[in-house]
Nucleic acid binder design. Structure first.
Length: 569
RNA sequence: CGGGGCAUGGCUCAGUUUGGUAGAGCACCUGGCUUGGGACCAGGGGGUCGCAGGUUCGAAUCCUGCUGCUCCGACCA
């Protein structure tokens, strides 16, 4: 490709709308342009990178037994009503009507379509397993699209669906995908961790998210400093704490004026924060009052709490509702709460506390020497707290770190949720009707491109890993009017091209500085500079974008040397 | 959905407080000059100031409504 023909409008200034590096750089380097909020045009450079990512995905999916198909973007409402998700997805789906008033949606995902497809064709266990995938646009009317391609309303996703005859078959398909994902993200040059995650509303039994580590990521993950345990912080489990060998003292009510916060209470009573119990009140979708209790220095994990009480959604409780249940906001405890009006959930670590301080359900009063085992009464006891840095790893006990990441893929055991809802089954060895045991496996393709940039860039621009760079090598003649330089550049260009290197020749009639700046901004892994030194001293100057290293090759050896260089990028 | 902010040429922004001939830098076009890190000189083109109303002799500027973008929060396979 000649740069003079490339549609890659670079910007010197950062567009005001872009907040994070990947978004800014993709706009500045001429990769994307916005058409509407969360909707982008991919320009040639972005499209090349996306196609390379897709190709890696295809190769790994095919190697794992997947077959590529293409399902419709526009999907009939009937299938969604059958699975029950027409309402569940609700406002997050783009819905359209045809001229007859029939309802359709723009596919936010494809479980319904694929389940319908397979149930019509697969009749026997002998035909299983089936692994089908596609790479295609998805549509979600996100409440808040942001960060460019990171959270768009239209985005590219690879989704594969597995159909097995039983759980053990699903386990095999799941493992294949897990391994394939590991290969894919390694080949893309990303730093990532597969992390355990919560199933959420989709309702699966087991799931891992593949998270690219990046400070700008939207999800928090807990990573063990010693073993390979890593989990989304919503999921990260906490080991039981043993109760200290302490004599239980008698419960005592004390006056604690103006102490609505934990900090105020412990200061007033001069207690360590580990001796205090914090209360947080929620209401669920059925307006049930859920009162959660954790140690003073801990935070409530809303997802765990939600699972503990089998709620779909939680919101902060209204003060009147707390009062009606016998509680006093700011001074709440399980002692004296009306169990008919409040569901009490106590974190497991609280149950191991001795002689603790908690609210008295009375304004400006707290109990001291509360012993949960003895005093709290009826309660759901579960792990409901948020993991924090330094907490012990549930596998090996070493401290965990909390870090941020970008969720670029997930593998999910669906089980029979959709096959049951949509009556999708087959006949087993005994001639009995059975539902498919399904899995779904997604990769955010356009998001992966963003994540790569978030992980690898500097103040000058993007630094592409070779495998997904739009071009691997850029040749920059210093002076476009110098015929000797242009001729040599062209020779090198043709030679690299013939060697199947993705190469670009910057033949624009620009000054050298402009071309250097653009090359750094766009992020070609390798740059070959053709100036006087190349003509007079046989110095084919070759620079590695990532390290800044400069190699002085010759006309004789550059072809081999450049390809060697690329091996390690 | 709640709370902020913004909307002026392709981009970044000034001008709005206090109404009076629409500006700068970059980008673009022409000519010259220059060529190892976003040059320089001269000339030039391009904007119904987001949209719709209103106030006024006169509105980018004041008022009302709307739309879009954006940030924080809530939400999120």
């Amino acid at each position: 490709m000649y740069a003079s023909n490339l549609y890659a409008p670079t910007l010197r200034e950062v567009p005001a709308e872009a907040e994070i590096p990947s978004h800014q750089l993709m706009l500045r380097a001429g990769f994307i342009r916005k058409a509407a909020g969360g909707v982008y045009t991919y320009l040639p450079l972005a499209w090349r990178t996306l196609r390379k990512i897709e190709q890696i995905i295809r190769e790994e999916m095919d190697a794992a037994g997947g077959q590529e198909i293409a399902m419709p973007i526009m999907q009939p409402s009937e299938l969604w009503k059958e699975s029950g998700r027409w309402e569940v997805f609700g406002d997050e789906m783009f819905k359209v009507n045809d001229r007859h008033g029939r309802e359709f949606c723009l596919g936010p995902t494809h479980e319904e379509i694929i389940t319908d497809l397979v149930r019509n064709e697969i009749r026997s266990y002998k035909q299983l397993p089936v692994l089908l995938y596609q790479i295609q646009n998805k549509y979600r009317d996100e409440i808040r699209p942001r960060f460019g391609l990171m959270r768009g309303r239209e985005f590219i996703m690879k989704d594969l669906y597995s159909f097995d005859k039983d759980e053990s078959g699903l386990d095999i398909s799941y493992q294949k995908m897990y391994d394939a994902y590991t290969n894919i993200f390694n080949r893309c040059g990303l730093v990532f961790r597969p992390v355990e995650a919560d199933g959420g509303a989709i309702g699966g039994s087991n799931t891992h998210e593949f998270t690219a580590l990046a400070q700008t990521g939207e999800s928090e993950i807990a990573v063990c400093t010693k073993c390979d345990y890593a989990a989304n912080n919503e999921k990260a489990e906490l080991a039981l704490i043993e109760a200290p060998a302490e004599t239980e003292l008698a419960l005592e009510k004390v006056a604690t004026p103006d102490t609505k916060t934990i900090e105020a209470v412990i200061e007033y009573l001069n207690l360590p924060i580990e001796k205090s119990i914090k209360a947080v009140a929620f209401e669920d979708e059925h307006d049930r009052l859920i009162c959660a209790f954790v140690r003073g220095d801990h935070e409530v994990n809303e997802v765990k709490l939600q699972n503990a009480v089998e709620a779909v959604s939680l919101r902060m409780a209204d003060e009147n509702v707390i009062t009606a249940a016998g509680g006093v906001a700011g001074f709440m405890s399980p002692i004296g709460l009306d169990r008919k009006k409040a569901v009490v959930v106590v974190d497991q670590s609280v149950m191991a506390m001795k002689n603790a301080c908690c609210g008295a359900n009375e304004a400006d009063k707290h109990y001291i020497n509360a012993n949960p085992q003895r005093d709290f009464g009826e309660a759901i006891v579960k792990d409901i707290r948020l993991i924090a840095a330094g907490d012990p790893c549930p596998h090996c006990g070493a401290p965990v770190e909390i870090t941020r990441g970008i969720e670029i893929g997930q593998v999910f055991k669906l089980g029979t949720k959709y096959s049951n809802a949509m009556h999708a089954g087959f006949l087993d060895e005994n001639g009995r009707e059975k539902p498919f045991v399904m899995g779904c496996y997604g990769i955010g393709v356009s998001r992966t491109m963003s994540a790569a940039i978030e992980q690898l860039h500097d103040e000058n621009g993007i630094i592409w890993p070779k495998a997904i760079a739009p071009y691997e090598v850029a040749i920059v003649p210093i002076n476009a009017k110098d015929e000797a330089q242009m001729e040599l550049a062209e020779t090198i260009y043709q030679a690299l091209k013939n060697a199947h290197v993705d190469v670009l020749l910057d033949d624009r009639k620009e000054r050298a500085g402009v071309k250097f700046k653009d090359a750094d901004l766009i992020g070609y892994p390798v740059r070959i500079t053709i100036g006087p030194k190349a003509i007079n001293e046989d110095n084919i100057e070759t620079k590695v974008r990532k390290t800044g290293e400069i190699f002085n090759f010759t006309k004789e050896n550059y072809l081999v040397k450049v390809q060697e260089l690329l091996q390690d990028l």
